[in-house]
């Protein structure tokens, strides 16, 4: 078996492939890009920079202020006005008369 195998292997001249030159530059490009990319820790740390922190607080303040404006602040002046909020204005007339009969 060994002799036959050796003959088989010797009958072929295995050619060594040349490594494409572009591979190394691509490897270094990838490595450098990864090295420059900030880590999650860097991103969190960057949030605490004074300018960004001021901006974040400004956004928060404007958000709270504008949302408070949107809230209906009307306070009822009397008990009737307060209770009138809970009446259904579109209740059919016959139902009101029916309830009065009861």
């Amino acid at each position: 078996m060994n002799k036959q195998y050796q003959d088989l292997i010797n009958s072929v001249s295995f050619k060594s492939k040349d490594v494409p030159l572009s591979i190394y530059s691509k490897v270094m490009e990838t490595i450098e890009t990864k090295e420059q990319r900030p880590t999650p820790f860097d991103l969190i740390l960057s949030l605490f920079q004074p300018r960004r922190l001021t901006f974040a607080f400004a956004v928060l303040f404007v958000g709270i202020f504008s949302s408070s404006l949107l809230i209906d602040k009307h306070i009822p002046s009397s008990k009737d006005e307060y209770l009138s909020q809970f009446y259904f204005s579109d209740v059919p007339e016959y139902m009101i008369s029916f309830s009065n009969q009861l």
Partner: peptide
């Protein structure tokens, strides 16, 4: 080949 050497570096 590219991935192997990036992996080696990392």
């Amino acid at each position: 080949m590219h991935d192997v050497y990036v992996k080696i570096y990392e």
